[in-house]
Structures are given as structure tokens and as C-alpha cells.
């Protein structure tokens, strides 16, 4: 019956005039109806089988949902948080049976690893990091990077999280003397990490030595840009940025995302590709995610917009549905699924 109620949503594609589609495949409705703060996917062993599951987070709970045929999701575990609210999920790419979450109020105060202990047959939440955490990201190979503390004594730390959810190794990275806003792995370069700062600089670290290799300006067109993804090719560093603080009155012409190429040797950069909304659409990014060659953003209008990074144009628009505006968007870890969340805790899988 639920499958019958789910109808494909087709969206006219933007600049090419071609019809592209986002097809609704399933819907999760959190029975507690608590306000949703984040959604993500994680690999989890279910009945001996590594399965791509969905995580939903409210301020007081994080729930793991396993897929069930057809188009159904079943809640498997729920971790409870009674003292400090959940702010965001911090997935560690390619890690199974473990996920990190950030807890706090206006700022992150704690990062915890969530797992299920088969030995003790109980859900566990173990502290990985505490402090005034300004930015955090999960990296490949069980690594978690975070920046912590006020500017004059900002600490940047890389932690390797063990399978048991504990701090296994850690390395201090040299701080850039500017508050870090976001981190992004450099695809294909395991030891390289980039970050963006409040002064609109891109910084590059060596994760093996902790060295700060370079601080480079990424222009003054948009303040406080956020880095989402980076890769190195032919001696250049390509970085996908978003501009959450673009001026509202200029939002119709501003790119939501932008790819820049920067020469780390000279710190010179150029814009490669702007990712704009289709003609007639306006909006500023509230939040978004880039994975593979896809980018998605929730706009302040409550619409989700999707771009193909190589084609360079918006490939789908998902306007608010009858249930309300969109507040969250994430890409699935494996396939080309898009998770779209609403404030009431509903998650739609396209």
C-alpha cells in the first residue's frame, strides 16, 4: 500500500531542456515525529551481511534503519542522548558498524563514536573528542579531523578511530592562524587535506607530517566559502566550494557551488565552473553535499537543486512537497540515491 502511494517525481531539467528525473523510491517516517537534525548512510552488518543502512538524527536520538523489501525501512537501533543534543552526523567513509556524531548546542562540544557491542550486547557511545569544536570531518581510513578552541590557541587534530570506537592514534596538524570553517579530503591523495577559513583562504596540510603546506586566497567575491571536495590533477588542485554567505539580493546570479583550480606552487587560482540555478530560479544555499560528480543543495526557498559537476548544469529541481519544505540533503554512500529530509523527521529516498 505504501508503494502505491509513492509516485515518481519528474522534474524538468533546466538548461538543456531535457527531462531528467528523480524517482521517489521509499520514505522513512520517524514515528516519534521529532525534529530532524541530520541524515546519512552507513554500512552496517545486518544478519551477517554488510548492508547500506540509513541513519536519522534528531536532537535526542540517532536511529539506524535497515532496508526491507519492498521499499520499506526498519529501525534497528536507536542511540539516546539525554545530556547534550545531537547537532550532526559525522560519517567515516568506508567504515562499517561505526559512525560518529557531533553533540552540542550552538557549537560542537563533543564527538562520539556510536556502535553496537556484540560482546556486551548493547549499544555504545564513546567519546572521541571534547572541546569547543569549530569544524569536523570524517576521512577515509578511519580518520577524523577536527579544529578546536579559540583562534589564539586553535588546535587541529587528526584522530584514527579504532574498530572499538576508541582513539587509536592522533596527530596534531599545524593551525593556520585563521578559524577553519570546513575540511575536505583530496581525492586520490591520502596524505593531503584541504580546509577553508573565515578569511576565505584555502589551506593544505600533509596528514603524514602534520605540516601546513600552503595558505592561498580564493578570492573576495564570496565571503567564508565552504570546501566540499578536492582533487589533484596535472599539478593543479581542483576544489568545489559553496557560498552560503552570498548576498541575498544577488542570489539570482550567484553560483551555488563553484569549482576553482588553484596552483599550489604559485597560489594563483581561476574559476573553472560555476554551478548556478536555472534561469528564473533564485536562492541561497542553506546546506548541501558533494559526492562523486554530483552536488546537491537545499536552498532557502525549501527547494533541493542537483548538479552534475562535469556537465556543469542543474540536472534536477525538487520543490517542496505537500508535507513541507526540504531541510536536509545527502547522497547515499554507494548508489546514486539522494536522501531528502524534512524538519518533521521524514526522509524521502530518491
Amino acid at each position: 500500500e505504501q508503494a502505491k502511494r509513492i509516485e515518481p517525481v519528474f522534474n524538468t531539467c533546466c538548461e538543456s531542456g531535457k527531462r531528467c528525473s528523480l524517482q521517489l523510491t521509499s520514505k522513512l517516517k520517524n514515528p516519534s515525529s521529532s525534529c530532524s537534525v541530520d541524515v546519512s548512510t552507513v554500512w552496517w552488518e545486518v544478519a551477517g551481511c554488510k548492508t547500506l543502512c540509513i541513519l536519522t538524527a534528531s536532537e535526542a536520538t540517532v536511529s539506524l534503519w535497515k532496508p526491507q523489501d519492498p521499499r520499506e525501512w526498519e529501525k534497528v537501533y536507536t542511540w539516546q542522548f539525554t545530556e547534550i543534543p545531537v547537532i550532526q552526523i559525522v560519517p567515516l567513509p568506508d567504515v562499517c558498524n561505526l559512525v560518529c556524531v557531533a553533540l552540542g548546542n550552538l557549537e560542537i562540544r563533543e564527538i562520539k563514536a556510536l556502535l553496537y557491542s556484540a560482546e556486551e550486547k548493547c549499544l555504545q557511545q564513546l567519546r572521541v573528542k571534547a572541546g569547543t569544536i569549530k569544524a569536523v570531518a570524517g576521512l577515509r581510513h578511519r580518520r577524523l579531523v577536527s579544529s578546536c578552541g579559540p583562534l589564539h590557541c586553535q588546535q587541529v587534530e587528526l584522530v584514527i578511530v579504532s574498530e572499538a570506537g576508541r582513539r587509536k592514534e592522533n596527530l596534531s596538524l599545524m593551525p593556520p592562524e585563521e578559524t577553519i570553517l570546513a575540511f575536505a579530503e583530496v581525492q586520490g591523495m591520502q596524505q593531503a587535506l584541504v580546509g577553508t577559513t573565515v578569511m576565505n583562504n584555502l589551506v593544505v596540510w600533509n596528514l603524514k607530517t602534520g605540516q601546513l603546506l600552503k595558505k592561498m586566497s580564493i578570492g573576495n567575491s564570496y565571503p567564508a566559502s565552504i570546501c566540499h571536495k578536492a582533487y589533484s590533477d596535472m599539478g593543479l588542485l581542483f576544489v568545489v566550494l559553496s557560498h552560503p554567505h552570498a548576498q541575498e539580493n544577488e542570489s539570482s546570479g550567484n553560483p551555488v557551488f563553484q569549482m576553482i583550480a588553484i596552483n599550489p606552487r604559485t597560489a594563483l587560482s581561476i574559476g573553472v565552473m560555476p554551478y548556478c540555478l536555472p534561469h528564473g530560479q533564485a536562492g541561497r544555499i542553506l546546506e548541501g553535499e558533494v559526492k562523486g560528480n554530483c552536488a546537491a543543495a537545499v536552498l532557502n526557498s525549501g527547494t533541493i537543486a542537483v548538479w552534475d559537476l562535469f556537465l556543469g548544469h542543474c540536472t534536477a529541481l525538487l520543490p517542496p512537497n505537500a508535507d513541507g519544505h526540504w531541510s536536509l540533503v545527502r547522497w547515499s554512500d554507494m548508489d546514486s540515491s539522494l536522501l531528502a529530509g524534512q524538519e518533521d523527521g521524514s526522509v524521502f529516498v530518491y
Partner: peptide, 23 residues
């Protein structure tokens, strides 16, 4: 883009910057 836009490009930029940066 060309060298003139971005200056001389090095394929080994990561290793070179690691050698030059303070430890």
C-alpha cells in the same frame, strides 16, 4: 587554463611543498 594564468605548474607540488614547509 595555461601556465600564464596560474604560473608554472609542478606535478610534484605536494612533495615539493612538504620539503619546503616548516616541520
Amino acid at each position: 587554463c595555461s601556465d600564464s594564468d596560474l604560473g608554472p605548474i609542478s606535478l610534484n607540488w605536494f612533495e615539493e611543498l612538504s620539503l619546503e614547509a616548516p616541520p
